[in-house]
Design a protein around this nucleic acid. Structure first.
Lengths: 183, 183
DNA sequence: GAAAAAGTAGAGTGATCGCTCTACCGATGT
DNA sequence: ACATCGGTAGAGCGATCACTCTACTTTTTC
């Protein structure tokens, strides 16, 4: 059961993702969510709250998107990169929603907190997956490398296209794992 | 000899870098550059032109910043990453100015062109440096990996701090080079 | 079926935006 | 001496912004 607020949050997410943050006034957001201005403000009492709501929706949606996938082996570790590639195939490519939000609202503590938390949990995703396939091994450096490649891929997809960025990131990730004897 | 326009462009660069794009109105930019509104508009006839001017200034300044450094060996290739780390130590850490500008002005062809061009030349920087230390070798994949790490480092510095991001990127870059037998 | 809750449309408000314009000032060249 | 040029200060313009409010309608609840 999705609440009305969640439905609107999803619409806000889509609008911000497709059109960017700067160019979306509240009236445009209202039209995109197909609600009245009064109702929109009821659930999200300021524009900043709308941004926060969209990011919270996206955070949840993206970790849902990451769930599942191969259970063991190298593909288990590469899964977040593969899924990022899948995601980039389906959506307009405007970079990372979270970093874009931060660029646009550098002084908002609420937004900064959500972004940092989301990215920290993404970085942990690699740690957890690495730990599960090579328990006991020190995987911190490898996890950091994979996260760097992940972030680089997100931005590079915007610049050079999704396919090229995905191929490069996957190749580099495999090489990094192989260099540590993980295959 | 720096022209007045270049001086103002430098001030605009600094303002956008420190305060972000969204929160800087033209009046604030004017005050930061310490000129009259009329003069500002003389050199940069629209706000978009001010953004373009700041990016052009930064593009030039950053490639100047990259010049010099170790002439041969692995340090020659790692130099752009090392210098990025130096840069991040000296400035407020608000991510990549170019990508932030693109996030804020997704519909501006002029801004998009500058950003793509800047990033393409940055990526080429790794190709050129790799080519010079291992001529004849196919270095395309390695160059792409280094660029991914470079971009990832820029964003991660914002999230996890400059030192951690720099260490991780340098370590990963060395590992990638070593895996290809370059040391 | 009446009351209450939650929705709609959309005009209105004050602030701020990018940008233009008038009026004036000081240095420089001949 | 004086015209010219490049500058300053800052008021003002129309548009747009985030946000509020009134008046009315629909849906839900008991």
């Amino acid at each position: 059961m999705t609440t009305r607020k969640e439905k609107i949050a999803g619409d806000l997410d889509r609008q911000f993702a497709e059109m960017g943050f700067a160019e979306q006034g509240v009236e445009a957001l209202r039209a995109g969510a197909d609600v009245s201005l009064r109702t929109l403000y009821k659930y999200f009492p300021s524009r900043e709250a709308m941004v926060v709501g969209a990011l919270e929706f996206r955070d949840k949606a993206y970790f849902d998107w990451l769930s599942g996938g191969p259970e063991g082996g190298i593909d288990h570790v590469l899964h977040p990169i593969v899924r990022l590639g899948d995601w980039l195939r389906e959506v307009a490519n405007t970079g990372c929603l979270f970093l874009n939000a931060l660029a646009e609202h550098p002084d908002s503590a609420a937004i900064r907190e959500i972004v940092l938390d989301h990215k920290a949990r993404l970085a942990d995703e690699f740690r957890i997956r690495l730990q599960s396939i090579v328990p006991g091994k020190d995987i911190e450096r490898l996890a950091e490398t994979l996260f760097l490649l992940h972030e680089g891929m997100t931005q590079t997809a915007r610049l050079q296209g999704r396919d090229r960025a995905t191929d490069a990131a996957l190749r580099a990730a495999r090489a990094a794992l192989a260099a540590e004897g993980i295959a």
